[in-house]
Design a protein around this nucleic acid. Structure first.
Lengths: 109, 109
DNA sequence: ATTTTATATCGTAATATTGCGATATAAAAT
DNA sequence: ATTTTATATCGCAATATTACGATATAAAAT
């Protein structure tokens, strides 16, 4: 026990939860907001701007990258991270479907 | 170490990450989808439908309730859970702002 | 009053996440 | 060739999450 039983859920449910999990951390939200605003991002800036250690930021960037939410290319000494448009749109769509299926306040409780 | 340093992030960033975390699990996504479809929900149904133990489902429902995403009222022997419209709209809005700030594929990498 | 039914809580084991110092890597500048 | 600069990875401790059996609770049926 102690590990999520992915096998009993649909691929869509697992995929959506994986993407949401990648975003569900204040540091990673902050990183994404920063990337979204500047449309460009260098890791070094984040280390100064957020108050986390360089190793920690690097780890959060890796998680976002592994989930496919951001992508990075080496640019000389530094690395340029930006949004992965494909995954971003996919997630936006999935969330749209999810939230769209709410039929308003005809609640029972 | 080992615990999220919430104090260095904004209230909005922390709130959004908390709500996303509550949703970022396939079982809880499945539960929400079930509630959204039927606009009503009883825990017992879920135990049969998903393949998780009763204690586990109850725990997931509690997490969704604690986050304010669902609300429940006792109805005789069973409990009726449904979406909390206030939080649902709040999250939808926050996500709208978040995803809306993406300025398209003028990516650098 | 007792049993049944539906849900919640407790306790616990397995696993995952978070954060960071230390160290590695690798390109650029000297 | 060596040093500097930017980022990644390793190893580890602290904490959180996931799942479930066992047990508690509490209303409904008998």
């Amino acid at each position: 026990m102690g590990l999520t039983r992915s096998e009993i859920f649909t691929d869509e449910q697992n995929q959506l939860s994986t993407l949401l999990k990648a975003i569900a951390h204040p540091a990673r939200i902050a990183v994404l907001q920063r990337i979204l605003i500047s449309n460009t991002c260098i890791c070094g800036d984040l280390v100064e701007e957020l108050g986390l250690a360089q190793a920690t930021i690097s780890q959060h960037l890796k998680e976002l990258k592994t989930a496919g939410i951001i992508q990075g290319t080496i640019e000389g000494v530094s690395v340029c991270y930006c949004i992965n448009p494909k995954t971003w749109k996919l997630l936006e769509e999935q969330l749209g479907t999810f939230f769209g299926s709410y039929k308003g306040e005809t609640s029972c409780c």
